[in-house]
Amino acid sequence: NLRWTSEAKTKLKNIPFFARSQAKARIEQLARQAEQDIVTPELVEQARLEFG
């Protein structure tokens, strides 16, 4: 299971509600691909840039 830093959680809250669950799934996918067990603000930002 993935842990989220408080900064990453804050960044996730800045994503519009309607896109948040999809973004969260993508962020967690990116973390797993990078073999990380902690979601960082950088991963959230990477996903945000993908979504535009």
Rank of each mutant, 00 (worst) to 15 (best):
D37G: 08
Q22Y: 12
K11H: 10
K24N: 02
R20G: 02
R26D: 04
I38W: 13
K13M: 15
L43G: 01
Q46F: 09
E28W: 02
Q36C: 09
L2P: 06
I38V: 12
E45V: 06
E42S: 06
E7Q: 09
T5S: 11
L43I: 09
N14K: 14
A25Y: 09
K9F: 12
I38R: 05
E42F: 06
E28P: 01
I15Y: 08
T5G: 03
Q46S: 07
E28C: 03
L30R: 04
L30S: 02
F18Y: 14
I38D: 04
E45C: 06
E45F: 05
V44N: 01
E35H: 15
T40P: 02
P16D: 04
E50D: 06
E45D: 13
R26W: 13
L12S: 01
T10Q: 15
T40H: 03
L30A: 04
N1D: 10
E50R: 07
E35P: 05
D37F: 14
L49R: 13
Q29N: 07
W4A: 00
D37W: 14
Q22E: 10
E28S: 03
T40N: 03
A19Q: 14
N14G: 09
R48I: 15
T10I: 15
V44M: 06
E42Y: 06
R32C: 05
A34H: 11
L49I: 11
F17D: 08
F51Y: 11
T5N: 04
A25H: 09
A25M: 11
T10A: 14
A19I: 15
E28K: 03
E35A: 12
N1K: 14
S21Q: 12
R48M: 15
S6N: 12
Q36W: 08
K13N: 14
Q33D: 12
T10M: 14
Q22A: 13
E7N: 05
N1Q: 14
Q33I: 11
A47V: 15
E45M: 09
K24Q: 06
F17M: 12
I27M: 02
A19M: 15
L12V: 03
I15K: 02
S21G: 11
V44T: 01
Q29C: 07
K9Y: 13
A19G: 07
R3E: 08
L30M: 10
I15Q: 02
V44H: 00
A25D: 07
F51P: 03
K11M: 15
Q29L: 10
Q33L: 13
G52H: 14
K13S: 11
S6Y: 12
R32A: 05
R3K: 12
L12G: 01
I27F: 01
I27N: 00
E50F: 09
E45K: 05
A23T: 07
T10P: 00
Q29H: 08
L49Y: 09
